[in-house]
Write a protein that binds this DNA or RNA. Structure first.
Length: 200
DNA sequence: CGATAGATGTCCT
DNA sequence: GGACATCTATCGC
């Protein structure tokens, strides 16, 4: 698919990513899911971003790629996947935080070692899809490792504060997290699950 | 070279 | 809602 919707405004790109099917090819096995939860990180001015003030390190150097590339980092022994937006002088991206399992769910269950909460968190979905920093950091989307496809359309998108950034001062209040309302494949899901997953 | 801080996950009460 | 396991890059000494 055409990835130009990723370039430009990162908050818009984040919302447009909801519902897209993200497809992984590892060890000859296909797994995929529909994106249900994302967070935007706005580079130089965002205290919660790994690229706040533009500082470049070995850990975050792949953030300085252009839109359509992946930035994968490791923390607490888990891998987290970002899709880059914009160009190299504006290191911004979208963290994928939740997906609704679609293709080859059995493989995802095996990779996770459990059959509930397969992909409702950033470290969980990377494990379910087989995404790792050493094999995926810096790759280009739609080159046969991680692909994006049109998927479903959210009925309603809700914006909330981002999760896990409590020490980042004023940035904790930014409404840069977007979820598909009523879909349960979302971090800390509370409330009623919508009958059709919240899709149109 | 030791200390520590995370864009986390899991299990427990 | 909270404790604890876990691990790597970065920073301070």
């Amino acid at each position: 698919m055409d990835l130009s919707f990723l370039s430009g405004n990162t908050l818009d790109a984040a919302k447009h990513l909801l519902g897209k099917e993200i497809i992984s090819y590892v060890d000859g096995i296909v797994t995929s899911g529909y994106i249900t939860e994302v967070e935007a990180y706005l580079g130089l001015d965002d205290k919660a971003s790994h690229t706040y003030l533009g500082k470049k390190t070995k850990k975050n150097e792949m953030m300085f790629n252009s839109y359509g590339h992946l930035y994968v980092y490791t923390m607490h022994g888990h891998h987290c996947m970002n899709i880059l937006t914009r160009e190299t002088e504006f290191p911004e991206g979208v963290l994928i935080r939740g997906i609704e399992p679609h293709q080859n769910i059995q493989t995802m269950i095996e990779r996770r070692g459990r059959d509930t909460h397969i992909s409702d968190g950033p470290g969980k979905l990377t494990k379910a899809l087989g995404v790792r920093r050493d094999t995926h950091n810096g790759i280009r989307i739609n080159s046969g490792i991680i692909d994006l496809k049109e998927g479903k359309i959210p009925q309603k998108i809700v914006a909330t504060k981002r999760i896990g950034i409590d020490t980042k001062e004023e940035a904790v209040d930014y409404l840069y997290r977007f979820i598909v309302d009523g879909n349960k494949n979302v971090s800390r899901f509370r409330g009623r699950a919508h009958e059709n997953g919240g899709w149109m």
